[in-house]
Amino acid sequence: MSDENELPPKMRLSAQKAPPKPKPRPQDPIEQEFWNRCQDGHLYFQCCGDCGTFRHLPRYMCAKCGSPEFSWERSSGKGTLFSWTVTHQALHPAFAADIPFVAAVVELEEGVRMATRLIECDRDSLKLDLPLELKFEPIGDDFRLPVFRPRKE
């Protein structure tokens, strides 16, 4: 069946509405705090109160010195492309309209690496250490997801 009109009405693309993009559902309060802080349009990472090492993913103890002391510090939002892959298959129907998209690992100026998605970029220009900047993508009316795009220098 190559013609959409030959499909049953419920199976036609025009009749299907994409579901909303899923929001993170952290199981731990410290992870929830990370997402809550993103909602002001800035990115924050934990900084060890003893050795000054930034850390991500959020956790209760510093991986470098073992200290439980930390504060949330605002990130510059600048980083470089550490790794990436171009994704051609949507693993959730809400992302079907976005494929192909670039799933990436960004190394931030603070030294942490973060899994994210690249937007507004020409896939042919992707290269290691490509300068990137933070942007937030609204998901629904009440949630912002941190994504990155090539930095305008």
Score class of each variant (00 low, 15 high):
139 I>A: 07
34 F>Q: 00
10 K>Y: 11
40 D>K: 07
80 T>F: 09
150 P>V: 11
1 M>L: 13
31 E>Q: 13
65 C>I: 05
148 F>Q: 00
153 E>R: 12
15 A>T: 11
87 T>N: 03
1 M>Y: 03
128 L>E: 11
114 M>N: 00
145 L>Q: 12
95 F>Q: 00
2 S>R: 03
108 L>A: 05
2 S>H: 03
44 Y>T: 13
37 R>K: 15
113 R>G: 09
11 M>A: 14
82 F>M: 02
138 P>I: 01
110 E>W: 05
129 D>R: 15
41 G>N: 11
43 L>N: 01
14 S>Y: 06
55 R>C: 01
110 E>T: 10
135 K>Y: 03
27 Q>W: 12
136 F>H: 03
90 A>T: 01
81 L>D: 04
99 I>K: 05
85 T>G: 12
41 G>R: 07
36 N>R: 15
47 C>E: 15
120 E>M: 05
99 I>T: 14
39 Q>W: 07
9 P>V: 13
41 G>E: 08
6 E>N: 15
21 K>E: 05
82 F>L: 11
109 E>S: 14
133 E>Q: 07
37 R>P: 00
7 L>H: 03
58 P>K: 10
34 F>H: 00
33 E>N: 02
57 L>G: 02
140 G>N: 07
12 R>G: 14
37 R>Y: 03
57 L>A: 05
64 K>G: 09
122 D>R: 00
95 F>M: 02
114 M>F: 04
79 G>V: 04
24 P>N: 06
17 K>P: 02
142 D>C: 06
122 D>Q: 06
125 S>W: 03
127 K>P: 07
106 V>E: 00
148 F>N: 00
36 N>S: 11
76 S>C: 07
118 L>Y: 00
153 E>T: 12
111 G>Y: 13
113 R>Y: 10
118 L>S: 00
110 E>S: 11
109 E>W: 08
109 E>H: 05
132 L>W: 06
145 L>A: 13
110 E>Y: 10
80 T>N: 12
139 I>H: 04
138 P>V: 00
149 R>C: 11
35 W>G: 04
55 R>G: 06
25 R>N: 15
25 R>Q: 15
7 L>R: 12
3 D>Q: 03
23 K>E: 06
142 D>G: 07
147 V>F: 01
118 L>V: 02
91 L>I: 06
73 E>Q: 14
4 E>W: 02
112 V>A: 04
38 C>F: 01
136 F>D: 06
108 L>Q: 02
49 G>A: 09
61 M>G: 04
45 F>I: 01
68 P>R: 13
28 D>V: 13
96 A>T: 09
20 P>C: 11
32 Q>S: 14
84 W>L: 10
30 I>C: 10
4 E>L: 08
70 F>C: 09
8 P>S: 12
144 R>Q: 15
2 S>I: 04
81 L>R: 07
76 S>Y: 05
117 R>K: 01
70 F>M: 14
87 T>I: 15
129 D>Q: 15
153 E>F: 12
146 P>L: 05
55 R>Y: 01
3 D>E: 10
76 S>Q: 08
14 S>E: 14
37 R>W: 04
51 C>L: 01
90 A>C: 10
2 S>L: 08
2 S>C: 01
139 I>P: 01
9 P>G: 15
